[in-house]
C-alpha cells in the first residue's frame, strides 16, 4: 500500500517535472479565459407602458416565468441588440449627410445659477433690450470652419484647437443670448392676438425656462433637421391644462429621445411664470424644439 502510493506519487512528480522541462513556456497562451458571452436576454419585456403616477407596473413580471424556462432560445446575439427599438442598424448609418460636424458644443455649461432667477424677474423688457444687444454672440461657426483648410491654418496650434471654447462660443449663456434673432422670427411674424411685445415677453420666458430645463441628447448634434413640435395648453397658473403632446412622428431612436427629452423639459419646468393678464395669448402654444444652433 505505502509502496504503491509512493511509487505513484514519484511517477506523478516525475511526470510533472518532465512536463515542466519538456513543455516550452506556455508562450503566448496562458491567460485566455474563455470568451463565452453567456449573457442572455430573456425578456425584451419592454414595459414602456406609461405608468401613470404611482401605479405598480407589475405587468413586467408576468413575462418572466415563461421566459425563465427557455433561456437559450434567445440567440445570444440578441443581447446587445436588445435596444428596444426595432429600427435598422443605426450604426452603419448610410450617413453621408455630410453636415458640418457642428463645431464645438457650446456647452461649457454656463454658470447656471443665474438663469435660476431670471424667469421670475418680471422685467422681460429689460431682458429684451439686453438680448437685442448681444445677439451676434451667437455661437456660430467658430473659427475652424469646415471648408478648405489651407488658408485657415494659422501657425498657432491653439487656433487649431476647435475644441477650445473661444470667445464666440463662450458668451455667458445668459438666458438672453438665445433670442435667436437670426432664426425665423416666428413669434413676431404671425398676426394674432397680443401685441408684439407681449408675444416677445412670453417667448422670452419660455425660452429662458427651456434653456435651463432642456437636456437635449447629444446625438442631436448630428440631427440637424430634427424638429420636435409640442402642442401645449396651459391653465391660468402657468401649469399644463393637459399633458404635453408631441406632434412629431417618432421614426427612429434619435427622434424618440429628442421627443422624450423635450417632454421631460416641459414638465420639469412647469409651472411657467407667464403674465396672467395675457393668458389669452399663451393659453395655447406651439413649441418647436430645434437644436440647430446648440452645438
Amino acid at each position: 500500500m505505502r509502496w504503491s502510493v509512493s511509487i505513484s506519487s514519484l511517477i506523478h512528480v516525475a511526470l510533472l517535472a518532465s512536463a515542466v522541462v519538456v513543455l516550452p513556456d506556455p508562450e503566448e497562451f496562458e491567460v485566455t479565459t474563455s470568451e463565452a458571452v453567456p449573457v442572455e436576454i430573456i425578456s425584451e419585456e419592454e414595459v414602456p407602458k406609461p405608468v401613470p403616477p404611482e401605479k405598480p407596473p407589475e405587468e413586467a413580471k408576468k413575462p418572466e416565468p415563461p421566459k425563465l424556462e427557455p433561456p437559450k432560445p434567445e440567440p445570444k446575439q440578441e443581447v446587445a441588440a436588445l435596444p428596444p427599438k426595432p429600427e435598422p442598424e443605426p450604426t452603419p448609418k448610410p450617413d453621408p449627410v455630410e453636415e458640418p460636424p457642428q463645431e464645438k458644443p457650446v456647452e461649457e455649461k454656463p454658470p447656471e445659477p443665474k438663469p435660476e432667477a431670471k424667469p421670475e424677474t418680471p422685467d422681460p423688457l429689460k431682458k429684451l433690450i439686453e438680448s437685442h444687444k448681444l445677439p451676434q454672440k451667437k455661437p456660430k461657426a467658430p473659427k475652424r470652419p469646415k471648408e478648405k483648410p489651407p488658408e485657415r491654418f494659422d501657425d498657432t496650434i491653439n487656433a487649431l484647437l476647435n475644441k477650445l471654447p473661444d470667445e464666440t462660443s463662450a458668451p455667458l449663456p445668459d438666458v438672453t443670448e438665445e433670442t435667436e434673432p437670426t432664426d425665423t422670427p416666428r413669434t413676431a411674424a404671425v398676426s394674432q392676438s397680443g401685441t408684439q411685445l407681449e408675444r416677445e415677453q412670453i417667448a422670452e420666458i419660455v425660452r429662458a425656462k427651456m434653456s435651463q430645463c432642456w437636456n437635449p441628447p447629444a446625438a442631436l448634434k448630428d440631427a440637424h433637421n430634427l424638429k420636435v413640435t409640442f402642442n401645449l395648453a396651459f391653465d391660468r397658473s402657468g401649469g399644463f391644462a393637459r399633458a404635453p403632446q408631441s406632434e412629431t412622428a417618432v421614426s427612429d431612436s434619435i427622434t424618440r429621445a429628442a421627443v422624450e427629452s423635450a417632454r421631460r423639459a416641459l414638465m420639469r419646468c412647469a409651472p411657467y411664470p407667464l403674465p396672467e393678464e395675457t393668458y389669452d395669448v399663451w393659453k395655447d402654444m406651439v413649441l418647436n424644439f430645434r437644436p440647430i444652433t446648440m452645438f
Binding site: 416666428r186 394674432q192 397680443g194 434653456s211 395669448v281 395655447d284 406651439v286 430645434r290
Partner: peptide
C-alpha cells in the same frame, strides 16, 4: 391644427415659439 393648416392668417390665439437653446450639461 386645422386652422393652421388652412393657412388663414393665424388669428387664433396660438403662439408658436422655437426653442433652439437647451442646457448641455
Amino acid at each position: 391644427v386645422a386652422l393652421l393648416l388652412a393657412g388663414t392668417p393665424r388669428s387664433l390665439a396660438l403662439i408658436e415659439i422655437d426653442i433652439t437653446q437647451g442646457n448641455v450639461e
